[in-house]
Nucleic acid binder design. Structure first.
Lengths: 234, 234
DNA sequence: TGTTTACAATGATATATATCGATTTACATA
DNA sequence: TATGTAAATCGATATATATCATTGTAAACA
């Protein structure tokens, strides 16, 4: 008989709480609301967590692993809009509007996602002013992030966009200049809105100019200053 | 002595109410909160309503006219993200996060904007659940709109992007296939993330193919079906 | 009326980027 | 170890787009 585990890693939202800034302002009572109907699912690399177009019934928190959030376009062309890491959540803009997912999320490595019903999230919004404001603030930060990305993608050429993507991975996702590369070349192309071949070429150029070093499945940024210059003027 | 008029056009938010869906759920009491400290300013064409980078202290409603919302990039390259029309509002993602404006808004023709202090807006959010949900919904719809734009700009080539811009103007801004063109060629270029010269060229091509007709300061879409095809496959 | 000025248009050219075909490499599996 | 398969690489080429220099046009103005 199939067993659905309530929790693989987290036994209670209280334990998870310190990982996710968004839930900071919740009282024990409200953490219990969050905890009540949640369930966790473990995804293998490349498995889909959300599928664009499906019904948006749950908010997800990543309790472990890494996932890519991407919009599926025409002719198999995707655009990766962000990388989700442990402790971060994703609702998607459809949550309270048309209740559909406007992007897909898939696991980049073994990843655990915690699913929280939208109705419970709504309860928190309605009953806790601070949480509500934190949520709105987080939506706003999302927008600012998206605007930045849009400017990078539409106004810089390939080298500048690639620099931005590498800086994003290094600074915001991993927090260090040497990081494992779970993304394929195609993924990197999808982050920078260029063809796979171009992504390969630009990365090679960065390597031969000593800006990055690639060994096995890792990338190290060896000349951060130069990369930031390229980001700014490329 | 300089006179600051409380209102040029609207005497009370109650009168304005039917124009703006976002305020639909407000009671008389809360409309009074909205009304209390608001003030209107008339802008001449090309004048700046918000300047990117400045302090985000007010939400604005357009009570008349038309304005462009755009992000100022590097080397004078701007990206127009939307056109604001009568009854619509703009807060900007900085409102409740870093209290800075992340985009500029300037008038495209004589335009009246009503300024509402952020604190009053916040009061409404905190005291009226329905309004709060409407506001969140509206933020979400904004995000969906931005995602769509980002996909258009990064995954379509010039003709497709131009088609999208024209369809946007026709369907969402003016609501009809014949409309006055208050935008310059540079503006259109800034909407479609291409150079001014390219924008001119693509528009000329659309004209010679009978997709649009341009007379004086107006554009008419004469072959909507064809334009939609170009939008989809270009 | 002529003159200025900003905007629009256009052809020639340069540049950025995508595409294609052919190899190579890495890795999983028999 | 052999072998199949997907991913990465690379050069040649085609295409899309920007840039530049020039001309045209129409509204504003002296």
């Amino acid at each position: 008989m199939t067993q659905f585990l309530k929790s693989h890693r987290c036994f209670d939202c209280k334990d998870c709480n310190n990982k996710s800034p968004i839930t900071k302002s919740l009282s024990d009572k409200h953490l219990e609301v969050l905890n009540k109907d949640r369930f966790e699912v473990v995804f293998k690399p490349d498995e889909m967590i959300y599928k664009q177009g499906t019904s948006a019934t749950h908010i997800i928190f990543l309790t472990s692993g890494l996932a890519k959030v991407y919009i599926e376009g025409f002719q198999n062309k995707n655009l990766i809009i962000k990388i989700l890491k442990e402790g971060e959540y994703a609702g998607g803009p459809g949550i309270f509007s048309d209740t559909r997912h406007h992007y897909s999320i898939s696991a980049l490595k073994e990843t655990t996602a915690c699913f929280i019903p939208v109705e419970n999230w709504k309860t928190l919004i309605e009953e806790n002013k601070d949480f509500n404001m934190d949520f709105i603030r987080s939506l706003n930060r999302q927008s600012i992030f998206t605007f930045d990305k849009m400017m990078s993608l539409t106004q810089k050429q390939m080298h500048g966009r690639m620099a931005d993507a590498l800086l994003y991975l290094s600074k915001e996702v991993y927090g260090k200049p040497l990081f494992e590369l779970v993304l394929s070349r195609q993924d990197i192309a999808d982050m920078t809105a260029m063809s796979k071949d171009s992504a390969i070429r630009v990365l090679k150029e960065f390597q031969s100019e000593g800006i990055i070093t690639e060994q096995a499945k890792a990338i190290e940024i060896t000349n951060m200053q130069k990369l930031e210059n390229i980001s700014q003027f490329g």
